[in-house]
Simulated scan of single mutants.
Amino acid sequence: MADENLSDNEREELLRQWWRDNWAWIVGGVILGVGLLIGWNYWGSHKQRQAESAGQLYSDIEAAVAAGDATKAQEKLDALIGDFDSSAYAQQGRLLLAKSHVEAAKFAEAESLLRTVVDKSKDEELGAVAKLRLARLLIQDGKHDDAVKLLEPLTAGAFGAQAREIRGDALFAKGDAEGARAEYAAALAEADVQIDRQIVELKLQDVGGVVPASGAVQGTL
């Protein structure tokens, strides 16, 4: 090779020339890499601090609700929403305060919070929980068709059995025994369910359905 015929001085001069031609790129690359590393570490620390702050505010809401201090709970929720409205903690805070409102018979306030979770939650599970709870409030308010429509997207998912049961409650409340019977039967037919089977079986029997001893469900007389 040509380089093998060069003297040590010539090789050294070539190395110096290469450095003169490329030093700016090399130094710039090192600086950029260090800057990216520092920026990434800062961003990670920033996100961690945000998560900790949001978690603390949620804990404050829990404590206020447990103490029966609705005013303080609302203040902490407002602070959580103000700084971290896109976080799951904000949606969990709304769900928690909505439950507290229901227990205090403040149904309008609870409905407003639940609708916000339904509309804003990026977490599908939290959104589904909000729909189930909102549907129960709608039934209580006589909005049976709205409850049935709200839960339609959930009937084929992990919350299918619960959605079916609540839809059955809505249909029963509006006098549609046949529709309620079909929904209760569908709820009991789910393989992996999060419902009280004995209660749903009683509901099914109340609307004319039959639950054989074998556990198979007959939705009609």
Rank of each mutant, 00 (worst) to 15 (best):
residue 181 R to H: 06
residue 162 Q to S: 15
residue 189 A to Y: 06
residue 130 A to C: 11
residue 190 E to M: 12
residue 187 A to Y: 02
residue 183 E to N: 12
residue 152 E to T: 13
residue 140 Q to R: 07
residue 148 V to Q: 02
residue 188 L to P: 02
residue 140 Q to T: 07
residue 182 A to I: 14
residue 167 R to K: 15
residue 130 A to K: 12
residue 183 E to K: 02
residue 132 L to S: 07
residue 166 I to M: 07
residue 132 L to K: 11
residue 190 E to N: 07
residue 130 A to D: 11
residue 131 K to C: 13
residue 176 D to A: 08
residue 160 G to R: 01
residue 186 A to S: 14
residue 143 K to D: 05
residue 153 P to A: 08
residue 170 A to P: 03
residue 176 D to T: 04
residue 156 A to Q: 12
residue 151 L to I: 14
residue 162 Q to D: 11
residue 179 G to C: 11
residue 149 K to E: 08
residue 159 F to C: 03
residue 171 L to V: 06
residue 161 A to Q: 08
residue 179 G to A: 03
residue 170 A to Q: 00
residue 152 E to S: 13
residue 146 D to Q: 15
residue 131 K to H: 12
residue 170 A to N: 01
residue 188 L to G: 02
residue 132 L to V: 09
residue 161 A to V: 07
residue 162 Q to G: 10
residue 131 K to G: 11
residue 146 D to M: 10
residue 130 A to N: 12
residue 132 L to W: 12
residue 160 G to K: 06
residue 173 A to C: 08
residue 186 A to T: 08
residue 154 L to V: 08
residue 130 A to L: 13
residue 175 G to V: 13
residue 147 A to Q: 02
residue 179 G to D: 05
residue 153 P to N: 06
residue 189 A to D: 07
residue 129 V to L: 15
residue 154 L to C: 03
residue 175 G to C: 12
residue 129 V to E: 01
residue 152 E to Q: 14
residue 153 P to T: 08
residue 136 R to Q: 11
residue 179 G to Y: 01
residue 190 E to T: 14
residue 169 D to C: 10
residue 138 L to H: 10
residue 173 A to F: 10
residue 133 R to T: 05
residue 165 E to H: 05
residue 176 D to F: 04
residue 180 A to I: 07
residue 175 G to R: 06
residue 168 G to F: 01
residue 139 I to V: 09
residue 161 A to L: 08
residue 169 D to Q: 03
residue 157 G to R: 08
residue 131 K to M: 14
residue 136 R to M: 05
residue 161 A to C: 13
residue 166 I to V: 15
residue 166 I to E: 00
residue 161 A to Y: 06
residue 187 A to M: 07
residue 185 A to C: 15
residue 135 A to Y: 07
residue 142 G to K: 10
residue 142 G to Y: 05
residue 177 A to E: 15
residue 130 A to P: 04
residue 146 D to Y: 09
residue 170 A to V: 01
residue 140 Q to E: 10
residue 181 R to K: 14
residue 145 D to S: 13
residue 164 R to S: 14
residue 129 V to W: 05
residue 182 A to G: 14
residue 187 A to H: 02
residue 157 G to T: 09
residue 146 D to S: 12
residue 162 Q to H: 11
residue 170 A to T: 00
residue 132 L to F: 13
residue 186 A to R: 11
residue 143 K to V: 01
residue 138 L to V: 10
residue 171 L to N: 07
residue 160 G to H: 01
residue 162 Q to V: 09
residue 172 F to Y: 12
residue 161 A to D: 03
residue 134 L to C: 13
residue 168 G to P: 00
residue 181 R to G: 11
residue 154 L to I: 04
residue 141 D to W: 02
residue 150 L to E: 00
residue 181 R to I: 04
residue 138 L to N: 03
residue 150 L to I: 09
residue 148 V to L: 06
residue 137 L to P: 04
residue 177 A to S: 15
residue 167 R to V: 15
residue 151 L to C: 13
residue 151 L to M: 14
residue 135 A to N: 04
residue 148 V to N: 00
residue 189 A to S: 14
residue 153 P to Y: 05
residue 143 K to T: 03
residue 165 E to F: 04
residue 170 A to I: 00
residue 131 K to Q: 15
residue 164 R to T: 03
residue 129 V to P: 00
residue 137 L to I: 12
residue 181 R to W: 06
